[in-house]
Amino acid sequence: MTVFKKGELFSGPGGLSLGAKISKIVDGNGIEHSVEHTWANDFNEEACKTFINNISPNKPASVIYKPVQKVDISKLEGIDAFAFGFPCNDFSIVGKSLGIDGEYGHLFTYGIEVLRTHQPRWFIAENVGGLKSVNEGKTFRLIMRELINSGYDIFPHLYKFEEYGVPQARHRIIIVGIKKDENLKFKIPAPTYIDKFKTAREALLNPPILENAPNHQFTRHKQRVIDMLNHIPPGENAWSEKIPEKMRLRVKGARMSQIYRRLHPEKPSYTITGSGGGGTHIYHWEQPRALTNRERARLQSFPDNFVFSGNKEQVRQQIGMAVPPQAAKVIIEAILKTFAGIPYREDSRGPRWSQIQIQKQLNSL
């Protein structure tokens, strides 16, 4: 048996770790390859409780609740694998896109410190698609340079998670890194859903969610919101022409497409977020209401027995910021197959970043 001991920074509630936990492959010699949680860190107390309860109930001390700046990385247990979904606030296309100069932009350097201190055999770094373009791409190139200079070949790719069985149009940059001395090339796994995606209807109704399921509290809406939702067709939002004039929102300037946007039952959900005011909670295609946290969790591919800690808004934040476990599983199993020497289908569509192309990008810094 080959077991990769994994550490994680910015672990959130454990979406990526759940994907790692359920990732197992067996090679031609009957040897199992898997990933084992070793330690994790996050500054959100409720997210740490969620992680402990679902990922490491027998090792609560392995989850470190404190700001990453206060973690003594040199004293963490040695690891073979590492994951860090460093905060995306300053890289998102929604907002000012401050990049490295923002409040959160520098936090990726703590992941670099882990790589240089513990030299795991492979890592996964996750962030929003906007990372690629912020500051005209300079931030992304800087991050890639630091990862390469830490001793790794890197394999970045913009994954569309709906193409891998997640019932949600969620697009994220995932950088897989493998230590240079392993002499291994990671291949982007081929999508498993191309012509027919998993839909919102399938995710929420197959099977139906039990009434007493955890994190399944319904929102009490004002009557005017219910009346407006009743006039919005599936897939449309608060700016729908079907809404009577007297019920329409009086908003000047930009009109965000996700305000009171209802799901389309025959399509994947739009991107789930962890915060936002009225009208941003994702709305059922048929019933005039916001989704429950349990429903949002399903759209993120969490199983119903994964219980989130905290109040309603704290749970919403955890779900919206998490890596979908199903997406993590696909990528991590491809990594395990790479190390085990097991062939798998590669995504052959469009150009890919070769190591030479990446180096050319870095030379422009």
Score class of each variant (00 low, 15 high):
P60C: 03
K59S: 14
N44I: 09
A61S: 15
A47D: 01
V71A: 04
I64N: 03
D42I: 13
E46M: 14
N54Y: 02
Y65T: 15
A47I: 06
E45K: 15
V71I: 13
V63L: 10
A61P: 00
K49M: 05
K49P: 00
N58R: 10
T50N: 00
V63Q: 08
D42S: 07
Y65M: 08
P67E: 07
P60F: 05
N54W: 02
K59A: 09
A61T: 11
Q69R: 15
P67Y: 11
I52T: 05
D72S: 08
F43N: 15
C48Q: 01
K66D: 09
A61I: 10
N54V: 00
K49G: 02
N44A: 11
E46G: 06
P67W: 01
A47K: 01
D72R: 10
P57Y: 05
E45C: 12
C48N: 03
D72I: 10
C48M: 07
I64C: 03
V68A: 09
P60A: 04
D42Q: 06
K49Y: 05
F43V: 15
N41A: 12
A40V: 06
N41Y: 13
P60W: 08
K49A: 02
T50L: 02
N58E: 13
P67N: 07
P67M: 06
A61K: 14
N53F: 03
Q69L: 06
K49E: 08
D72Q: 11
D42M: 07
E46Y: 15
Q69Y: 11
D72K: 13
A47V: 12
A61M: 12
K66R: 09
S62A: 07
I55D: 05
N53I: 04
N54F: 01
K59Y: 06
N53A: 12
P60Y: 13
I64L: 12
P67T: 11
V63H: 04
N41M: 15
T50F: 00
K59H: 10
N41V: 13
D42F: 11
I52K: 03
D72W: 10
D42P: 08
V63A: 07
K66I: 08
N41S: 14
T50C: 02
S56K: 03
V68R: 06
S56L: 01
K66N: 07
A40N: 10
S56M: 00
A61V: 06
P57T: 03
K49H: 11
E45Y: 14
A47Q: 00
F51G: 00
E45D: 10
P60S: 04
C48E: 01
D72T: 14
A61F: 14
N41T: 08
K59G: 01
V63P: 00
N58W: 10
N53G: 02
K49D: 04
F51R: 05
N58I: 06
D72P: 10
I64T: 01
E46R: 11
I55M: 05
V63F: 00
I64M: 05
N54R: 06
E45T: 12
S56H: 09
P60D: 08
K59F: 04
A40Q: 12
I64W: 07
K66F: 07
C48I: 05
Y65E: 15
N44P: 09
I64R: 08
N58Q: 10
C48V: 09
N54D: 05
I55V: 02
A61H: 13
N44K: 11
A47M: 06
E45A: 12
Y65K: 15
Q69G: 13
K49C: 02
K66W: 04
T50D: 00
N41K: 14
P67Q: 07
P57K: 08
F51I: 00
A61C: 12
